[in-house]
C-alpha cells in the first residue's frame, strides 16, 4: 500500500455510494447514490434530519461500514477492495475519529490514549508533532490524568489529540459537541477549526447543531439518503433556514 504522506495527499470522496440495510420489502435505503467530496485541508459538515443517512455516510467513508454499491476513496485508496486487515491499517494510519461520547479507554491516561494508535501499530510517535498538538489543544498539564479525572471538554480535547496524532488524511467527528456544555462545545469547534487552518488537517463532522455547522467551510445537506444541497460559507442563520426547509427538527 502506498503510504502517501498526509502533507501531500488527503481528503476523501464518494461516487454513487449506496447503502441498503435489510432486503426485500423491509429494505431500507440509508444512502442512495451519494457522490460527495471532503476536500483536503477543508472542514466539511454533514447535516440533515434524523434518519437522513448522516452517520451511515460517515461510517462508510471511514471504513467502519461497507457500501452496498458505489465507491469510497480515502486519498487515492478505494475502500471496497480492502480486507479487514487492510481496513484496520487504514483506520490506524490515515483516519482519525472523534465521537460524541465514550471516546477514551478508561484505564489509560490521557497521554496513553493519545498514543494508542501508535501503540497498536507498534510505531514511534513523532514527538515534535505531538508537542505541537498538545500545545494547540492546551493539554500540557493533563497528560497524566485518567479520563475519569478530566472534564467532558478535556476528554474531547484528548480524543481530538488522539485523532490528530497520526497526521491522518481525514478526521471524522461524530456529533463531537453533543455531550458538552456550550462553552466546552465552542472550544472543541474552535480547535477543529484550528486543526484545519493551522495544522493543515482535513475534517468531516456530522452534527445537528447549526452553530457547529457554521464553523465549517462547507455544509453537505442530506435527506432520505440523498444529497440535497451543499452550502459554502455557512452561517448559523442560513443553516437553520435550510434545515427548516428540509423539515429537520434541529
Amino acid at each position: 500500500m502506498p503510504t502517501t504522506g498526509a502533507a501531500t495527499a488527503g481528503g476523501a470522496r464518494t461516487a454513487g455510494l449506496a447503502k441498503v440495510y435489510g432486503s426485500g420489502d423491509t429494505a431500507v435505503r440509508a444512502l442512495d447514490g451519494v457522490s460527495v467530496e471532503f476536500p483536503r485541508g477543508r472542514f466539511t459538515a454533514i447535516m440533515g434530519p434524523s434518519g437522513a443517512g448522516k452517520s451511515t455516510l460517515m461510517h462508510c467513508v471511514a471504513g467502519l461500514d461497507s457500501a452496498t454499491s458505489g465507491q469510497v476513496f480515502v486519498g487515492d485508496e478505494e475502500l471496497g477492495a480492502l480486507s479487514d486487515r487492510q481496513l484496520t491499517k487504514l483506520r490506524r494510519e490515515r483516519i482519525g475519529f472523534v465521537f460524541q461520547a465514550f471516546n477514551l479507554i478508561p484505564t489509560l491516561t490521557a497521554r496513553e490514549n493519545i498514543l494508542l494508535p501508535m501503540t497498536l501499530a507498534g510505531t514511534k510517535p513523532d514527538q515534535e508533532w505531538l508537542g505541537s498538538i498538545v500545545r494547540v489543544l492546551g493539554l500540557g498539564d493533563r497528560l497524566g490524568h485518567r479520563p475519569s479525572e478530566l472534564s467532558g471538554g478535556q476528554q474531547q480535547r484528548v480524543a481530538l489529540a488522539r485523532a490528530l496524532a497520526t497526521r491522518p488524511q481525514i478526521i471524522f467527528a461524530d456529533e463531537p459537541t453533543g455531550n458538552l456544555d456550550s462553552r466546552s462545545g465552542a472550544e472543541v469547534l474552535r480547535l477543529l477549526r484550528e486543526a484545519v487552518d493551522e495544522l493543515r488537517q482535513t475534517v468531516a463532522m456530522v452534527t445537528h447543531d447549526p452553530v457547529a455547522a457554521a464553523h465549517a467551510d462547507a455544509v453537505i445537506f442530506l435527506a432520505d439518503g440523498q444529497v440535497v444541497d451543499i452550502m459554502t460559507g455557512p452561517t448559523p442563520a442560513r443553516v437553520l433556514d435550510r434545515m427548516g426547509e428540509l423539515g429537520g427538527t434541529s
Binding site: L64, D84, R85, T88, K89, R91, R92, E93, F97, F102, N103, I105, P106, L116, P117, L120, A121, R162
Partner: peptide
C-alpha cells in the same frame, strides 16, 4: 471498548 480499540486501529 474493544470496538473503540478496533476503530483507532487495533487488529482482531
Amino acid at each position: 471498548e474493544s470496538a473503540l480499540l478496533r476503530v483507532v486501529g487495533a487488529s482482531r
